[in-house]
Nucleic acid binder design. Sequence first.
DNA 1: CGAGCATTTGAGTCTCCTCAACCCGGGTGG
DNA 2: CCACCCGGGTTGAGGAGACTCAAATGCTCG
Lengths: 266, 266
Amino acid sequence: MQHGQVNNGAHSRRNSNHLSDNQIDEALRCWAQRTGLAQNDLAALQALPFTCRTVERDGFIVREGEQPTSCSLILSGSAFRQKVVHNGARQIISFHFACEFIDLQSCLLGVNDHGVQALGPCTLAVVPKVALLEVVQKRPSLALAMWFDTLVEGAIFREWVVNVGRRNARARIAHLLCELALRQSPETREAPEGTIVRLPLTQEHIADATGLTAVHTNRTIQTLRKEGLISLSLGRLVIHDWKALRSIGDFNDAYLHRQASRPQRG
Amino acid sequence: MQHGQVNNGAHSRRNSNHLSDNQIDEALRCWAQRTGLAQNDLAALQALPFTCRTVERDGFIVREGEQPTSCSLILSGSAFRQKVVHNGARQIISFHFACEFIDLQSCLLGVNDHGVQALGPCTLAVVPKVALLEVVQKRPSLALAMWFDTLVEGAIFREWVVNVGRRNARARIAHLLCELALRQSPETREAPEGTIVRLPLTQEHIADATGLTAVHTNRTIQTLRKEGLISLSLGRLVIHDWKALRSIGDFNDAYLHRQASRPQRG
DNA sequence: CGAGCATTTGAGTCTCCTCAACCCGGGTGG
DNA sequence: CCACCCGGGTTGAGGAGACTCAAATGCTCG
């Protein structure tokens, strides 16, 4: 059925907006680099029929309980995964930034077991899951890249279980901030000390991500601030003492698998 | 480079023991069914050079920090994933039972970010990761099955984040027991009420899985027992009132994706 | 200037933790 | 055959971290 390679040229695939086309290509390139994808596989991705979409703050990208039909790649902005429990409390499960696919699980899982919302205003590139699945089925190395991405995501979930399960408020928050700072500063493996990290988080988001209440989160953040470890005000995080914060949060970046020895593929 | 199909016949692949050969084939068949794998892909899996290994209670299957060279499939017994935090406390991240691969992440991630130990005595089928990777790269539908397995695992991790993050002791334990009971009773989607579930868990395991202390876990289990909801003594769990326990634990089995609409493949 | 949201502060409470002792059944060795 | 030990379970008392409820502050935006 499927003949030859991907398709013909990336320039005919989307409607009009060349600006967003560039953005999509760039985001895919970034994703491909992180997952160690080869050039021709990247091209196959770029040839997919992405469409752009913008979501305002707190807008839903994925709704719990629905059956997904597409996958979304973040072009700009950030988003968070969340689940709501019986009494109405919310648990945030992960944060996602530019150049990340948010819902690859849509490809193979029948129903969304959680929701995803935009943290701030967010632009997305959306591709029908059938299109993505099709190319993945043709290209094993692409399938491995997807699998790899999902594995890293799983590793982060595991660390989050540990974070909310076995650390106190101070450590939980420190750990979260370490992770976010590191993931936001792409290439630098070490110590995002002193750099300003754009994080449109409210303290309530932090509370929901760490399994704490907003009030207690507030008090805990204040002590971190008073100790001169961090600055954290609306939308901006600065870590003044990376080593101290890392130690408080019991943070070890191995679980992020930022330079996993990904075996040859493609 | 890679010519033709898998290899030649499954009967020449392992040393001697026909009994364990059967066990391996059976476990793989079971896994293939769960992931919706087609017959020829299953055959390719069965042709891999698995070797058997037994691990005694609490023995390590995967060690944190090491570089994995193989993947393990549980033939009998059960295992748990765990991470240790700075102060020495342990968090259990998941439990695994027969016919499950425990460390598929070994295939693509460079270093183990957590450990896996046998819960009780455990027999494993071990395959070199390079062999697994090779066949996966040849067979896209197999890659998708691996990916699917990892996605479901990730969904379970997410629910665990919610469990330890946003539920009280009573609900956490109820939720955990619901999950374990359901996963242990394979085909039945509904209500493992009254059936005996073999679970070689100590209360300390339950505590470490739910982010509680052993003492508090003990007290909480006692109230569940006194209310006639469960029986739980060394190695045996019986759920007497499934609906009640499910309600207490805020348990919704959707996240297990037991009958996910897996798209056509293979 | 007021509305609305995020943050901050206070006071009282409760869940869950800590430390410690004790019980109990099974296995081992003298 | 009994004494002992050991791991898991149980119980008690006290304490602390985190929660709840409530109100006040500050900030941004219309």
